[in-house]
Structures are given as structure tokens and as C-alpha cells.
Design a protein around this nucleic acid. Structure first.
Lengths: 333, 333
DNA sequence: TCAAAAGTGTTATCCTTACACCCATGT
DNA sequence: ACATGGGTGTAAGGATAACACTTTTGA
């Protein structure tokens, strides 16, 4: 008979707040000290096959328990099961069982209401704090050429196949004139982890040596704030999925309130994609899809000319095939 | 402490053989009779957290043990865990444990070598046998209007919200002039299951009532051949993923031998997508991507003018961002 | 010579991108 | 008047879809 496997469920809950894409985080209890962890984590919990009918229902319960927040749109991301790689050591269920292995299933949730949270420890955190190199809205982030590029090149040079490693780094991080692909968030994080530039890598290596170090204490802000366990990897998976999906399914609207202006919609897409968009062309892209409908009313508090309010025509979803929004990028501004 | 959860790994192994997309299947042992099952299933097995280092390695072992076949390209599809819905009742590991719950992780594997298989019970099966309505290469399948359309309409009319159910059926199955979207394989299968038109639905309902019926015996060929457990659902998930991915990543080439003609490439894309393509435009699509390179040599056994041989320029993969192949469809032929 | 399959040319149309510009409000 | 953000016009270039057509083999 096979040894038991514990299943952990984690949620990347995304919202947009004041033009910033934010994710819901908690301060989990540290397994050794039983105090609140120094690092943040995603809302998560152990799946109980007797109590819970489906993964999704269990996940919704965890998030509400830990953050007071109720989920709307939810989709499964990926199931992580490798040994090492930031995978937790059977930390779930309140009991540490050395024989058990933890498998974590990541989920992506979207919500239009980035409400204030009363729950202690729970907080919305802008994702650029975890991935500073992913935000190109104000132009190419300087961290790429100042920190990441040189370190990755040094790492690549010491590899068995330096040319291939260098090509991969160049392609993913848009070094030496390569073009940026905003979707490859996960590949970039995994390369940084592999190269030892993610703070979690050192912690996991220490654990693999049996040193059972705590969570990483110090880290370089340029390389992003680390998270508990493999949660930053799950966050990267969620952001990658969302950046891809926004282009071929109308998921942005899950992040919008019932009424919004086209500029608000654009700022949301920009916050998610991390790219600056061309305003006139973005408007036409939106209009061509016919996914929104003008309400004839206006928002006045814009700082300039009043903007028309729109709503998402959700009823189209089961009336005809609907695609997402193309991203008419702005040349380097 | 949480009750144990067993993890099952299943593989959708896809190849193209004589212009037909085929999947690797086995005849699993029936849990009650201990004889070979009447229905086919996917290669699969229980994940052992002690023995196996990663899911993927375990999966490769299972497939080789059960079919004699070695996998190349592999990616994770989805993790299925609902109660009911064709989910197996702790059938894994040779022991039936009523308290345990089985979670199955589906994988997609692609291979250029649909070699003959010696292993007893293992066989390549064309996927149109599981999903006859998915093959539009010879035009709109008649089963849509003859069988599926009327039955779905009758089902929709008896629902709480007939209009929404009808709209969903029309959209997914291209009824009443709606356009066909070849990617939505899973949504279509799930609708058929929900409407009781998939043979597995009746079996699962009987089981839920505690009748523990065997696998479905008779079934309508027009509605596809059922599979063991939830394997037809996993197969649908794999086909859906592949049909989508073929357009934005160069995965078709994982199904091609090292040298091929453009017509062979086209027949492969057609077999996967289930759509007839426009030959001249397909050639130009391929040439524009610059993903293939002419070899100057020719294949003579074409039945007509000899065709130039090409190879996939795999070295481009880590040299620049590469997209997949657009599908220049042929109007109804 | 004809069938069969490979392969090329060309056009109308649509979408994308970029640039220039006008409009309505607050101070 | 002018700053600020909302909103429109338009033309060049590229991708797509559809049509007609030529080329090279085997029977």
C-alpha cells in the first residue's frame, strides 16, 4: 500500500487597486517557532477528502477563513509535486509527518473588489514587489541591466553548456536587444531560481543538506521579496496564466466593477500585463470586440474631460465565441 | 490527521499514424472480476511518493511498463478530484480502500513514432472513435444534426433555464448556423456528460446510487466509445490543450519525424485540429514562420509530383520567441 | 494524355500601428 | 488661456482568405 500523500491547496487571488495589480497574502504560522512567519504566503490549506466535496469548495473555505474574503472567478493552475524546489515538507494539517509528501495544487482567482481586509496578517500586496523586473509600464526596469543581466551571464558562463544557457537568459530577460515577452513570468522566475538569484533557492538548498534553516532573512529587493514555501513560484504561475489568458478570453472584466471607463479598463490591463498601452488603439481594440456597451452616463472626477461609463456585456458569453483583448503596446516611452 | 489520498497519474500519448491522430490505450484489469476490462483506458498508475522523485518520472515508467513505449515531450494537463464525475473509487494500488479518495493528474505526451506495439492489450486508437463529432475534415459530421442536436435540444428544454442551456449547446456544437470552435473539446464532452449522452454518465449515476454497475456495455457509436473511469474526460482535456497550443507554440513538430514534406505536416495539423486546411495558404503560413528549412532533397512516393523534404529548425527555440501555426481553414468542402 | 499531387501568383480585405489632431472639463 | 485627460481621423504596411493557375511525376 502506498504511503500517504497530503494535498495542499493554494490560491493566487488577484485584484487591481489604485492602478496596481495586487495579490492576497497571509502570514502563515512558522512550523518550528509557531509564531507568525517573517515571510508572506498565499492563502492555503490542506485538502480533506472526507470533509470537502471538491478542491474548489475547499479552497474557497480556506480563503474566507484566512482573509475574510469571498472568491468569485476561480480556475486551476498547476499541480506541484517535485521534491526540493521549495516544496513544503509535510507542513500541513498541524502535524509534521516525515514520511508524507506534500503535493500542492495552485489556483487562480480574480475579483473586482479589492476591499479592505480586517483579518490580522492578511493583506493585498502588489505583485511587482515579488517580481520587480516584470513591470515595464514606466519603461524597461533598470534592474534588468544593473543586476539580473550581469549575474545571469556569470551564471551561464559557468554552466556545462554556456551558449544555450546564455541564449535562454537573453531570450527570457530581453538582454542584448532581445524582445520582451510579458507572458513568460514563470520561466523567468524558474531561471532565477535555478541560477540561485531567488532567495528561496538558498533556503531550499540548505534544507536539502539537512540544515533545516528557517525562511530566508535578508534578500536583495531588486530580485524581489521571497515568499514562504513554493508560493512565489505559484504566484508566478498565476501571473503567467493571467497575462496569457487576458488576450484570448474576456477575463479582465472579472477584475472590473460593474461600471468603468475605458481608461480604467486600460489601466487594469496595463497593471496585469506590465506593459504601457497605446490609448487610441486600445480604445479601438475594445470597441471592435463589442464586449462593452456605453451607458450614456459619464464619470466627472477624471481631472480632465469627463469619461463615458461602460459595462461588460456578460450575456455575450454564451451567445457567441468571445476572444480577449489584444495589447496594442506603446513603443518605449 | 487527514485521511489518505491516492494520486493517480494518467497519460494522453498522442501520435499521428497514416494521417490519423491516435492515442495510446491499454486494457486495464477490472477491479471486480480481475479480468481485462471491456473498455479501454489510458496508461496510468499510482504515484508512490517514496519511490518516485517526480510525477513525470513516475508517469514515464508507467507508460513504458504498460505499453513498452518511451515518452518524449510531456506536459501536465489538469488535476481531477471531484467526487462522482467518473472519478475512480480508489481503484489504484491493487487494493480497494473505501476511505481513500483518488485524485488523478492528467498528462499530455507527444511522439513522432507511432511504432507498432507488442505489449498485449496496448494499442493506438484514433481519437475520432472517442469523439466522432470532432472530425470536420470531411465536412460537418452528420452525427451533429442527426443525433446530438435533437437530443441536446430536448435535454435543454427540460432544464431550469432552457434558454441558457440551449444557447450553450448551440454555441459548443455549432447548431443552427453557429460557428464551430475546434478547441472546445472538453466543454463539448462535459456538456454531453451532463446531458447524459455520454455512456459514462449512466454508469457513474448507477454507482452513485450504490448499484456498483460494471463499465457500460452497450453504447451508441455516434456518441463515441466510452472509456474506463474518467479517462475519456482526460483524453478530451488533452485534445483541447493540443488544439489550442498548436497555434501558439511549435508543438506540431513533436509529432513529426526528422524529415517531412509540407503536405505531411499539413495532414498532421489537420488530423489534430480536425479541420480541412487550404493548401496554398498553409504553405505560406509555414514559410512565414521560418520554422522549417528545405533540405534540397525530395520525396518521390507521393502519387504525383515529388515533394521537397523539410526539417524543423529546433535550434530556433532558444534563439528567439517562436509562435505556432495559424490554421488557414478551407470553407465548407 | 490524363490524373494526382506539388507548388506559385495575385488580389481584395481586414487588422495593426503610428501619427496628428480635436473635445470637454477644472483652475 | 492652458493643463489634463477623453476621444476621433486617417493612412501605411502587413497578415489573411480566396481565386486562378503552372509544374512534375506515374500510369
Amino acid at each position: 500500500m502506498s504511503p500517504s500523500v497530503a494535498i495542499g491547496l493554494s490560491a493566487v487571488v488577484v485584484a487591481v487597486k489604485d492602478g496596481e495589480a495586487v495579490a492576497l497574502t497571509v502570514r502563515p504560522e512558522d512550523q518550528r517557532t509557531h509564531e507568525a512567519s517573517a515571510l508572506r504566503g498565499l492563502p492555503s490549506g490542506p485538502f480533506d477528502p472526507v470533509e470537502h466535496r471538491t478542491f474548489e469548495l475547499a479552497l474557497r473555505d480556506f480563503v474566507t477563513e484566512q482573509t475574510g474574503f469571498e472568491l468569485g472567478y476561480v480556475e486551476q493552475l498547476y499541480t506541484f509535486g517535485d521534491k526540493g524546489r521549495g516544496s513544503p515538507r509535510a507542513e500541513l494539517g498541524g502535524r509534521v509527518d516525515q514520511a508524507a509528501r506534500v503535493v500542492s495544487i495552485g489556483y487562480l482567482a480574480l475579483t473586482p473588489r479589492a476591499a479592505e481586509i480586517a483579518m490580522p496578517g492578511a493583506a493585498w500586496v502588489p505583485w511587482p514587489r515579488a517580481f520587480p523586473w516584470e513591470d515595464w509600464r514606466q519603461g524597461r526596469p533598470s534592474v534588468l541591466d544593473a543586476v539580473i543581466g550581469p549575474q545571469l551571464k556569470a551564471w551561464a558562463a559557468a554552466r556545462p553548456e554556456p551558449a544555450a544557457a546564455l541564449a535562454r537568459a537573453r531570450l527570457l530577460f530581453a538582454l542584448d536587444g532581445a524582445t520582451w515577452n510579458e507572458e513568460r513570468v514563470l520561466d523567468r522566475f524558474e531561471l532565477l531560481y535555478e541560477a540561485g538569484l531567488a532567495a528561496e533557492a538558498e533556503r531550499d538548498q540548505a534544507r536539502a543538506r539537512g540544515e533545516d534553516a528557517g525562511e530566508p532573512a535578508g534578500y536583495s529587493p531588486a530580485l524581489g521579496e521571497p515568499m514562504v514555501s513554493d508560493h512565489r513560484r505559484i504566484l508566478a504561475t498565476g501571473l503567467a496564466r493571467l497575462r496569457g489568458k487576458i488576450k484570448y478570453r474576456p477575463v479582465v472584466f472579472e477584475l472590473m466593477p460593474s461600471e468603468f471607463t475605458l481608461s480604467e479598463l486600460q489601466r487594469t490591463v496595463e497593471a496585469i500585463s506590465g506593459l504601457p498601452l497605446h490609448k487610441p488603439n486600445f480604445r479601438r481594440v475594445v470597441e471592435r470586440t463589442a464586449l462593452v456597451e456605453g451607458l450614456g452616463r459619464q464619470r466627472v472626477e477624471t481631472g480632465g474631460r469627463p469619461a463615458e461609463l461602460f459595462r461588460f456585456r456578460r450575456e455575450l458569453l454564451n451567445a457567441r465565441p468571445v476572444s480577449g483583448l489584444a495589447l496594442p503596446a506603446l513603443r518605449d516611452g
